[in-house]
Write a protein that binds this DNA or RNA. Structure first.
Lengths: 195, 195, 195, 195
DNA sequence: CATGAATGAGACTTCATTCAT
DNA sequence: AATGAATGAAGTCTCATTCAT
């Protein structure tokens, strides 16, 4: 379950390469060099490039699940915008976490041979995100309302994650503001019984 | 400006390869074969892999701009959800257009050497989408309201485009429904003077 | 015998390429471009790369023969150093004549497939140089003395030509001075009957 | 500093190819085959074609420096012709040493991208040759005389080296004889105080 | 656990050349 | 006389992978 120090080091380097260049344009030679060893030494720790990639994916997903749960549970009082804690931290998280960058690139452009595998794993993460969000909602909310709101929230998340990739922090902030207002309004309306 | 038949054929094949495998995993040999010629013949039409890629990008962006303008202008009567014509056609469009698939993959995971170039070009497209949407809004809408609504609309677009990539049509429909409802509600609220 | 204007232009460009890059590293595409046409157009004027090369060689040799004859015949009065007119003009000639540069490179490093052919042709030039020099000598000089002096002169020529290739004009001048002094002394000694 | 057996083998094969065909017409495939391995294996030993070439150049220069020093120091008694030991061995050396052949071809027709680098290195060799020659001269010789004689000697060397490339051993012998006589006479005259 | 050496496969690209137009 | 298109051959180089040490 737990990785040796060398394997850890390799993963740390690999995640950055995969995040920046993608699977195909990342070379094991470069990763090995970054990890302070030669190419063949990688094979003492991983069965091959695919295995390394999947290992990194596992790590990134685990980390992201924790982050999602934590940020969504952190809401103390009643927030105007549900999930705001998560949404507001996205930019900072993206900038600081190669794992998150890796995850986004990997989901949006998976290496074709592992596509199904990757998307399946990502669905697990999304499902985690979904439950964490639902648990943060008022229990009084009707189920169909809650489902709809959750779906909208996940859409907002996707929208902002994409924004992270190809826009500047300033542009992101504008977009985030708009999306959060819309989501907040939607949540408020959902809370009212008659609508 | 206009391409020779051979160059056209090459682009047609290339866009599918780039859309499916990405830049790095697409091989000129495979593209040449698909176009019914040998590898070196490509160089009679394009300076290299990069030039071919950028040409394909240009074509895809041009096509997409037309689609965006057309779908957004098509609204006859007053729609409950602004931009609904565009949003509702997304799945069908994605399934039928390699150019659209190519565009999304390219923006979300650009080859690192052309990243800036690609994103710049994409911004031109987004800006086109933005104006087309704004022109479809009621002229009576206050400017700041219109801006906010537009920003939200673009977010919804991003959100749904991402969904196209890694989810099934069924799941997409659920998400689209949720996002459209939320957007519709936001638009309705924006139309009311006091809020 | 005489070349069409286009063929002339091609040769003019080709000689510079061959002189600078050598046969193998010169590309017909580059030569064609320099001549203001496309690659296949060259074949309307020359059977192929080899034929073009040999044509250029012919031109260069013809030109060089004239130069040799002229410089060696130009001696008005009795010079201290035989052939001095030729030797003193070498640097200037080298700098100004792509044909001369081409000739030296071609003789010292001929493309292996045409080696014999090239060297044979060059021998013709050397023989021309030889007779021109001998004719410039005092007729009173004994034949064996004249032969020896001529051989030495040709050696000096080779020595200075090499110097042109890999040394600066300053260094060349030093070398030329030394060689000319030596040759002059040798000539003076040869003129004395008893030695 | 010292090369592995495989790297040695590669250099041994490469020097012959480079000497015979020149840099551009030598193919790594042929060199690899000659060394008993496949093309990509070369890259385990050299960074690329250029690096291999420069390594071979280094080896050739080292070897040649030793030869020069040795032949020039070998003179026991007072020779009529200074440096005669070196000059007389040239033909034999040329025939037997691919490194020497390589060196001459490389200096006379360097690949244009490495021209400066190559010529610089060659100057180091020439300078070695120069000092070795000067040390072999009578210490009583005046400095300016010694310098002049040395310059003439280097010229003679150049002249004979060129002869090696494009002439037969018979022709070489004639040329060598003439040059040595001239040099010998020049040396004798230099030794006399009044001149 | 690490690596030097080797390799089959395949990448992009350039080349000289041909041919129909 | 010129050229756009096409191509077989070959170029250098990178890749992920294996194996003996």
């Amino acid at each position: 379950m737990s990785l040796s120090p060398s394997a850890q080091k390799i993963c740390d380097v690999a995640v950055k390469h995969f995040a920046r260049f993608g699977y195909d344009a990342s070379s094991l030679a470069a990763i090995a060099e970054g990890a302070g060893m030669r190419k063949p030494s990688l094979y003492a720790h991983f069965a091959g490039k695919d295995a390394l990639f999947l290992q990194v994916l596992e790590i990134a997903l685990d980390e992201e699940k924790v982050v999602a749960r934590t940020s969504l549970a952190a809401q103390g009082g009643p927030a105007d915008v549900p999930g705001d804690g998560y949404l507001s931290g996205l930019q900072e998280r993206y900038d600081g976490s190669p794992h998150f960058q890796f995850l986004l690139r990997t989901v949006y452009a998976p290496p074709v041979a592992m596509r199904e595998q990757i998307i399946d794993k990502y669905r697990g993460y999304e499902s985690e995100l979904r439950s964490a969000f639902m648990e943060s909602l008022e229990p009084s909310l009707a189920e169909d309302r809650a489902n709809l709101l959750t779906e909208a929230f996940l859409g907002v998340v996707d929208s902002l994650q994409v924004e992270l990739i190809y826009n500047s922090p300033q542009t992101f902030e504008v977009r985030r503001d708009a999306m959060c207002r819309m989501l907040g309004a939607f949540a408020a309306a959902s809370a009212q019984p008659g609508s």
